[in-house]
Amino acid sequence: MNRRLFDLDLLRTFVMVADCGSFTTASVRLNSTQSTVSQKVRRLEELAGHRLLHRGHRDIQPTDAGTTLLGYARRLLSINDEAFEVLSGAASLTIRLGVPDDFAAGRTTHVIAAFNRRHPQVKLEVTSGLSQDLCDGYDQRELDLVLLKQRRNSREAVASWPETLWWIDSACNPVFDQDPVPLVTFPPRGLYRDDIIGAIERLGRRWRISFTSSSLGGIQSAVADGMGISLLPARAVTEEHRMLTNDSGLASVDTMEIAVIHRPTADPMVRELGQDLARMLEQERR
């Protein structure tokens, strides 16, 4: 039985367009013409038997089929690049690590840099973002190792620790007594959002979402400036915030954990980096 084969050049073009959200920008980065890029995407759509991109007025977004193929395309291109690197004597292994935004600096980068110095032959690709996005990337095999925040025991982890969360308001411009209560949250599917809304509703208080951001820094600043209350890890609370005590009626949230996750069949180098991150988290708890 003859199976159709995906052309890596077409896949690379498709990934570039999806990442750029624009045929024009993708053509510049690929050092090609816009018409050539468009033709390659159409050829890939014919080969796949599905429309892969929604062509909007302002940007380009992958369809459901396109999102599915995107994960496979990245893996195929990564394997292709890795094969050339190995044969050329370059890096023998690439570790794709995902970390939440609030772990993307400080001690985490020190641990990663120390690992890189011990193993200069290993190529590290680090991605930061929302834990849910990191989970999706891991499930689609776009990431080899993830440090993330999740509800306790929601998936098997190499190591995990309870995550201490604090209710916070602005130190200078508190807003908890406003009606409705303004809330500062991560976007839908972001951590803590449902916990925040549920806690306020259990108090019988009205609420409104006054500020949404996928950035931890954006959440911290919005609360500090009096945009609303929020729920954040203890490590993310600053002097510009005021902790809301039990007197506020808000119950403590103890359903979250920090977890290090990799596959049982992970390369020994992935396991070693995972152990380094686990030791870092254990030290932070002490």
Rank of each mutant, 00 (worst) to 15 (best):
V111W: 06
R118D: 12
A222D: 12
M256E: 13
R151P: 06
A91E: 03
G217S: 13
L273S: 03
N2L: 11
P187H: 07
A90M: 07
E163M: 15
S22H: 13
R155G: 05
R117D: 01
D276Q: 14
R43Q: 15
R58Y: 10
V270K: 07
W161L: 14
L93F: 04
A157P: 10
E82W: 05
A222F: 06
S215N: 10
T33D: 11
T212H: 00
N80Q: 15
I95L: 12
T164K: 12
G218Q: 12
I219N: 02
D177N: 12
G204P: 08
L76Y: 11
D144H: 14
A171D: 12
S128L: 01
W161T: 10
S128R: 10
L244S: 07
R3H: 12
L44I: 03
I60A: 01
L124T: 07
L232Q: 10
E46R: 15
G56P: 01
G89N: 09
V86A: 02
S214C: 04
W167G: 08
A48H: 04
F186K: 11
D247S: 12
R193S: 06
N173E: 12
L250T: 01
D169H: 05
D7Q: 11
I112Q: 09
E257Y: 04
V237D: 03
S248Q: 09
D267Y: 03
L277G: 06
W166Y: 13
L10I: 00
G198H: 06
W207H: 14
K40W: 05
E240R: 14
T265G: 01
R208L: 12
I209T: 12
L191A: 13
R141F: 07
D194K: 02
L244M: 07
T238P: 11
P120W: 01
S32E: 14
A236S: 15
V175Y: 05
Y192F: 15
L52Y: 04
L216P: 07
D254I: 00
G228N: 07
T265V: 01
I258V: 11
V111T: 15
G89Y: 06
V15W: 05
W167Q: 09
A113I: 01
E284S: 07
F84K: 14
L165A: 02
L11Q: 01
M269N: 09
T67P: 00
R74S: 00
H57N: 09
W207F: 12
S170F: 00
W207G: 00
A222C: 08
Q132W: 13
D169V: 05
L191E: 11
G249Y: 08
V28Q: 11
L52E: 05
Y138H: 10
D177P: 00
M227H: 15
L277S: 06
Q140I: 04
A73V: 06
L70H: 08
D64L: 08
E257G: 03
Q283E: 15
R271F: 02
G56M: 08
R286S: 07
L5S: 09
A105T: 08
C20Q: 15
G198A: 07
R152F: 03
